[in-house]
């Protein structure tokens, strides 16, 4: 009888442990008008927020602006880290992507200071990386903006933001996202 009890407890414990989610990233595909552009892996215990193409209007000036799908990921329990991807329409080269980046970084980060830029390859595609610092909501942030040249006249723009005081181990998670980046064309 005692054996039975211990076996039952063991079974319970085993179910609990095996019931925990196994460590596997979640692949996500970025599509635009039904066309799959690229994919990346969302790390475990991160949330993904997807948007869609839409127009946003300035309430003061009344001019509508086209916005492509923005996908944002961040850890479920931490607001110090954020990463976003967007593939803006009608932006076809790294140069155009950098101009697009200039037009959004003033909203993303205040007083941005570029510390380094480099040309690299992400997922086998040419990419341009801009690293820098700035501040947001009174706190310093580190940002890494990446323009990845996708085939067929598209680019992917990825922005990773680490606020001051963020757990440094998140850098690995962010790099893992870039490592998992693949073009789907």
């Amino acid at each position: 009888m005692r054996n039975l009890l211990s076996m039952a407890l063991t079974a319970c414990a085993a179910t609990w442990l095996l019931g925990a989610p196994t460590l596997a990233d979640t692949p996500v595909t970025y599509t635009d008008e039904g066309r799959a552009l690229f994919r990346f892996d969302v790390p475990d215990f991160w949330t993904l927020r997807t948007g869609g193409p839409r127009e946003i209007e300035d309430t003061d000036l009344g001019d509508a602006r086209a916005v492509s799908r923005v996908m944002g990921i961040k850890p479920v329990t931490d607001d110090n880290v954020w990463m976003g991807f967007v593939s803006p329409s009608r932006v076809s080269s790294i140069k155009g992507g950098l101009r697009y980046l200039e037009d959004i970084d003033k909203f993303l980060v205040k007083d941005p200071t570029v510390t380094s830029t480099s040309d690299t390859r992400i997922g086998g595609l040419p990419a341009h990386v801009v690293r820098g610092t700035g501040n947001r909501d009174g706190r310093g942030v580190n940002f890494t903006a990446t323009v990845i040249d996708l085939p067929r006249d598209r680019v992917a723009i990825g922005v990773a933001i680490l606020r001051d005081g963020a757990d440094p181990s998140y850098v690995d998670a962010l790099n893992a996202v870039f490592v998992s980046f693949r073009s789907l064309q």
Partner: peptide, 8 residues
């Protein structure tokens, strides 16, 4: 950050 990335 998400909201800011929308605006361009």
């Amino acid at each position: 950050y998400y909201d800011s990335m929308l605006w361009n």
